[in-house]
Structures are given as C-alpha cells and as structure tokens.
Computed example of a mutant assay.
Amino acid sequence: MHVLILGGTTEARALAGLLHPRVRVTSSLAGRVAAPRLPAGEVRIGGFGGPEGLAAWLREHAVDAVIDATHPFAERISFNAAAAAATAHVPLLALRRPGWVPVDGDRWHEVASLDGAAAALDGFGDRVFLTTGRMGLVSFAARPEWFLVRSVDAPEAPMPARTEVLLDRGPFTLDGERALLAAHRIDVLVTKDSGAAATAPKLAAAREAGIPVVVVRRPPAPAGVPTTATAEEAAAWVAARVAARERAGG
C-alpha cells in the first residue's frame, strides 16, 4: 500500500514514523524551509502543479491513500488535495491538530487575515512580537511599530521598516517565552491559530504578563473531507484500509 502524506508539520513526521516501513510512505514537503526535518520513508520536495498535477502524480505512482497533514494555514494545498483525490478516486484524510482555545486571563483579539491583524494593532503599543512566519510580512510593511519577527528561515522584503529578526525553531519553553517578552518589552503578540503545542507557551507567557494577543483565525477547510486530530488516529485509518485490502485479497 502506498500512502502520500502532504506534510511539513510535526504531526506529519510522527505519522510517517508510525506507518514506515509497514506501508510505503511518501512525504511531500513544500520546500519553503531551507533545512526541513525529514520524516521516515520517501520524501519529495516541491509542488505538484495544481490539482491536475497532483491527480496525475497520484495515478502515476499508484497512491492508495492521501493524508493532508499540512499546516492549518496551507489553504491552497488542502483544496488542491481535495480536488485531486476526488479526480483520481483516492481516499483522502485530513490530519488537523486542534486549534487553540482562550482561557481566563487571555486578552485575545481574533481577526480573519494577516491584513486584519495589521489593522488591529492600533492602540496596542509600539513593540510587536510577530510569530506568523516569514511569509506574509507585506501585510505589516506599512506599520510604524517596531517588530520582533521570529521565523525558522530569514524573511525577505517587503517587511516593516523597524524590524528585528529572530531565527529560531520550536519547541519553545514557558520560561524562554517569559524572558523574551520581558527582554524586548513586548506590548502585543501577533500569531496564527496554528494550534501547535510546541509554540503554545508564548500564549501562556502573554497571559501572565497581561499582553494582548492578536490571533489570526484559521481559513476554511474543504467540505466533506474526513478529519482526525492525531497521528495515531490517522495511522489507525490507514491500518483499517490495509486490513480491508488484505481481506479482499485473501
């Protein structure tokens, strides 16, 4: 059985490790990170050329199942995967970590987009901790505030005129996030609702410090695609198909 994992996330790597070598696993990475953490099994890097290209790749490589374990904000590839899987008649599962939920003491301001996040900064102070990744900084390029931008790889222009870049990769600790907010005198945190446990300590640190958080909500997901929340559940989904295939063959 050949499973294609659309990956690049912690959950995708965990899933590849659970499946390999019991089934053939190919993990597809977008190639946006210079030195990605590679999963077990086969790896391909780069795009497919839209839903038609992905559907053709599924047929050419005899893929039996697709698991979309991309980042919750990788909206285009998720819709491409849904269209391609339907065209190629290949079952598709979405692996989506749960989103973050505010708790008592949080000062969240939810917005629908990065442009909305930039517009929401008025009145929050001059020092912004921006943790939305290196893509999309153009939304903040005209803002007058000072930005601390944290990303795995160095961002490219356009970006805010007053920017300090911090190259770092999670997981992050609560103590480390507390120290960072204090050292840089952060007034407001801007983040996407990625839902990752590895980056959640910044929310707790902001809560403790009374710092407001501008949270970009997740984009809509394709309708009709079954979804699971953990790598273990996705592995069980694959195992059920392997068992059904063995029964049919026997």
Rank of each mutant, 00 (worst) to 15 (best):
94 A>E: 07
124 F>K: 07
214 V>A: 11
226 P>F: 04
82 A>C: 05
66 V>W: 03
170 G>T: 07
161 A>K: 15
133 G>F: 07
234 A>W: 03
215 V>T: 12
45 I>E: 11
171 P>L: 11
73 F>I: 02
98 P>Q: 08
30 A>P: 12
225 V>R: 02
49 G>L: 09
54 L>R: 02
51 P>F: 05
221 A>T: 13
168 D>V: 02
136 G>C: 13
104 D>L: 10
224 G>R: 04
249 G>I: 06
208 E>Q: 15
104 D>R: 14
11 E>I: 02
99 G>C: 05
236 A>M: 02
46 G>R: 06
120 A>V: 12
226 P>L: 07
204 A>S: 14
30 A>S: 15
209 A>M: 03
149 V>W: 06
156 E>N: 11
198 A>P: 10
183 A>T: 10
214 V>S: 09
47 G>V: 10
7 G>I: 05
19 L>H: 04
40 A>F: 02
149 V>M: 08
21 P>M: 06
71 H>V: 08
19 L>V: 00
226 P>I: 05
69 A>H: 01
129 F>T: 04
125 G>I: 05
238 V>D: 00
88 A>L: 05
223 A>R: 14
185 R>I: 04
13 R>S: 07
54 L>Y: 08
198 A>V: 13
7 G>E: 07
134 R>I: 04
108 W>R: 08
62 A>H: 13
246 E>H: 10
201 P>R: 06
166 L>A: 11
165 V>E: 00
119 A>N: 09
97 R>S: 05
52 E>L: 15
29 L>F: 11
217 R>K: 15
1 M>C: 04
175 D>M: 04
121 L>E: 06
39 P>F: 04
109 H>T: 15
70 T>Y: 06
36 P>C: 03
241 R>N: 01
23 V>H: 01
86 A>F: 01
208 E>C: 09
109 H>S: 14
197 A>G: 09
97 R>E: 01
20 H>M: 00
179 A>T: 10
176 G>S: 08
191 T>I: 14
50 G>H: 03
106 D>G: 03
215 V>C: 14
155 P>G: 09
10 T>R: 15
208 E>A: 14
133 G>D: 13
200 A>C: 06
162 R>K: 15
217 R>H: 11
67 I>V: 14
142 A>P: 02
104 D>N: 12
109 H>F: 13
137 L>Y: 07
57 W>S: 01
66 V>F: 02
230 T>R: 04
146 W>N: 06
165 V>F: 01
123 G>M: 08
241 R>W: 00
1 M>N: 06
77 I>L: 13
232 E>C: 02
121 L>D: 11
195 G>V: 10
120 A>H: 05
8 G>S: 07
28 S>D: 04
93 L>C: 02
195 G>E: 05
14 A>S: 12
147 F>G: 05
41 G>Y: 05
213 V>G: 07
122 D>I: 13
250 G>S: 15
239 A>C: 03
130 L>M: 05
216 V>Q: 14
184 H>C: 10
20 H>F: 14
93 L>D: 02
37 R>G: 14
46 G>K: 06
70 T>P: 03
219 P>D: 12
16 A>F: 05
121 L>R: 07
112 A>S: 15
108 W>I: 10
108 W>Q: 09
111 V>A: 13
184 H>W: 15
62 A>I: 00
61 H>K: 04
235 A>Y: 02
30 A>V: 07
236 A>H: 01
195 G>Q: 10
